[in-house]
Simulated scan of single mutants.
Amino acid sequence: MIATAQEFGQRVARARKALGITQRDLALAINTGERFIVDLEAGKPTAQLGKALAAAKAVGIRLEDISSVELNRG
C-alpha cells in the first residue's frame, strides 16, 4: 500500500525508468511541465492529484481501492 506522497513518487519514478523514458518524456505525455514530474517523484505533498494520477496511469501504475473489493466478498 502506498501511504505517503514520497512512496507514490518513488513508485512513479521506478516505473518511468523501467519504461526507459525521461522525466521530460513523461511530462510531455501527460501535458504538464517537467518541474511537476521532478516534484512528484521527489514526494512533494502538494502535487496536484489529477496530474499525479495521470502520471501514474502513463507509466502503468494501476490504483485500486482494495477495501471495496474486500467488502464485496463479504
Rank of each mutant, 00 (worst) to 15 (best):
A3W: 05
T4W: 05
A5S: 15
A5G: 05
Q6D: 10
Q6M: 10
F8Q: 06
V12P: 00
V12R: 01
V12Q: 03
R14M: 07
A18G: 11
A18K: 13
G20S: 06
G20W: 08
T22E: 08
T22A: 10
Q23T: 03
Q23S: 07
R24S: 11
D25T: 13
A27M: 06
A27V: 06
A29W: 02
T32Y: 11
G33D: 12
G33W: 08
E34F: 05
E34T: 11
R35V: 09
F36Y: 13
F36K: 05
I37A: 04
I37R: 03
V38T: 13
D39M: 15
A42R: 14
K44C: 09
P45E: 14
P45S: 14
P45H: 09
P45Y: 10
A47D: 00
A47T: 12
A47C: 15
Q48R: 15
Q48P: 00
L49D: 07
G50C: 05
K51L: 14
A52G: 07
A52V: 12
A52I: 09
A54V: 02
A54N: 07
A55I: 03
A55C: 10
A58D: 04
V59L: 05
V59Y: 05
G60S: 09
G60N: 04
I61K: 02
D65T: 12
S67W: 09
S67Y: 08
S68Q: 14
L71S: 10
R73C: 00
